[in-house]
Nucleic acid binder design. Structure first.
Lengths: 289, 289
DNA sequence: TAGCAAATGGAACGTGTGACTCATTTTTTA
DNA sequence: TAAAAAATGAGTCACACGTTCCATTTGCTA
């Protein structure tokens, strides 16, 4: 008549989430060695799923019998039943991200239907998001936020393919009540607009290969006026990089010759909102004159 | 000698992709029962990963010994080695999409840092893409493509938050040499622009709650002129829906009050490119790609 | 500090495993 | 069609596996 876990508790965790919760809940009251395994199990669920009782016990630094006691305390009748839950977890979780993407992409490539085109764009967007999430340079991100939060006016500069991003940034900045100026090509007054920018302002410039000559030229001009520039572009060889105080390299996947914009969009939105938050936090007193 | 697989072939597939390719390549030359297992293995990789030789053989309808022969023909020294590859596949594939998203979202919610903001937007975008990929109505999609492909001029109508999407559509249509007209609010000539549209044209209208009054008004006007409308909006109660011949319901996830645009963007790009392709196919001789 | 219960380590055990072998059937070749 | 080779099915076996048991250690209570 030892621990209630084994015999009294009839609610045996059948799925991983429940099991995890149960373990975390009891963590404090577990004996040392059992707790040792509990921690190992939550940290290395894959090992539990595939390993043998002996190998797992060795990895966790305990005896195989302890492993079985652990399982029994949780209400399972043995290690094997416990292991089922860990295996079910692997089995039930949707086919992996990459596999799903590969499937989408395969369909998009082989299938001639229109749905394939859609799948292709979704795949491209997902890939781009996944990439940027992995590769975003946090230091650069912070730097850009600081730089932009100090600016009196944020100028947003982009043409052609990048223009939708710029227009969204302008919209979001407006909603956040941050003064901004979108440099559009429509009215042909770019030179004048740019002329107003001072070193107390800042620029977000966006351009991807093939870089719109106008964007480069305007970036150069505004850079010469001493206005700090945050650039979003696609490689370190980008002509934008040389002018920028901070620049982000965003690799967008493409489909059918049309590159995704999703990663750039996500970055742009994050930048914008982060700047808004930073300004609010610093009591609406940017370090300007 | 018959099959070099077992002894001669030294390139044993170590990863699932290679293994899969190898099996598919040899599929024709495999004996009946072996092929039976090969098919089962590719169709039920999870079962191979978790089952015992006996259980798998029973499921596949063969003898356990055949399973082992299958493994040996592929160059493995037994079923166990083969199984390792199937397990490695489960192990290596990144944590599931949902888990990853949950992690991002959790970080975004708890973490106060700026990185959290970025993660939040990436998560929102990913969720939106995943949703639309699941829920897209293919019939509507085809209908919209047909409708737009027939149009002489495609009018693109969107304000505020949806405007970036519209500007991208306009850009892409231009690249595809499809005549189009973006209804911008800048010049204040919207009424005149809209006046030119005829039933031979078509409109892509995009608006999300809170629906920009101007968009609704212009959509109504252009609808009254008999111009067919494809709408992208966020619910069946959207005022756009009543005017539209075809409409898409796109549920965008949001973060910090800013909705993602990624799903709308993907749909817009797919629509645009599909229209371009349809025109090419029906304009010239329809030719398989 | 003594006494007791819980926790742990380690060895022993019976079952079910994968792999091997060989007889039989099927397919290929001459 | 006969002979040879390959493929298959089924029985067997060594062994690794999960489990149980028991002696020992640790921790708690009085």
């Amino acid at each position: 008549m030892a621990l209630g876990g084994a015999t009294m508790d009839e609610r045996v965790p059948r799925d991983f989430q429940t099991l995890r919760a149960t373990i975390l809940e009891r963590r404090q009251s577990l004996p040392k060695r059992i707790a040792q395994i509990a921690a190992y199990a939550l940290d290395n669920p894959d090992d539990i799923a595939f390993g043998t009782a002996a190998s797992i016990a060795a990895s966790a630094g305990v005896q195989p019998s302890t492993l079985i006691r652990f399982a029994q305390q949780l209400g399972f009748d043995g290690f094997t039943s416990l292991q089922q839950v860990f295996r079910e977890r692997l089995r039930e979780r949707n086919s992996s991200y990459d596999e799903r993407l590969a499937a989408l992409r395969a369909k998009a490539e082989e299938g001639a239907g229109h749905r394939a085109i859609f799948d292709g764009f979704v795949a491209a967007a997902s890939t781009s998001l996944s990439d940027i999430s992995r590769t975003l340079n946090e230091a650069h991100f912070e730097e850009a936020i600081t730089l932009l939060a100090k600016a009196e006016t944020i100028y947003v500069l982009a043409k052609r393919r990048s223009y939708p991003v710029a227009s969204y940034i302008a919209y979001a900045l407006g909603k956040l009540k941050i003064r901004n100026q979108l440099i559009e090509s429509a009215a042909g007054l770019n030179a004048e607009m740019i002329g107003f920018a001072t070193p107390a302002d800042a620029v977000i410039a966006i351009s991807f290969s093939p870089y719109a000559p106008a964007t480069i030229e305007e970036t150069r001009t505004i850079s010469d006026q001493g206005v700090p520039i945050v650039a979003i572009t696609d490689s370190s060889f980008s002509p934008l990089a040389q002018f920028a105080k901070v620049w982000f390299e965003v690799a967008e996947a493409d489909f059918g010759g049309f590159r995704s914009l999703s990663a750039t969009m996500a970055l742009a939105m994050a930048l914008t909102v982060a700047v808004g938050e930073k300004r609010r936090d610093s009591g609406r007193k940017p370090k300007s004159r």
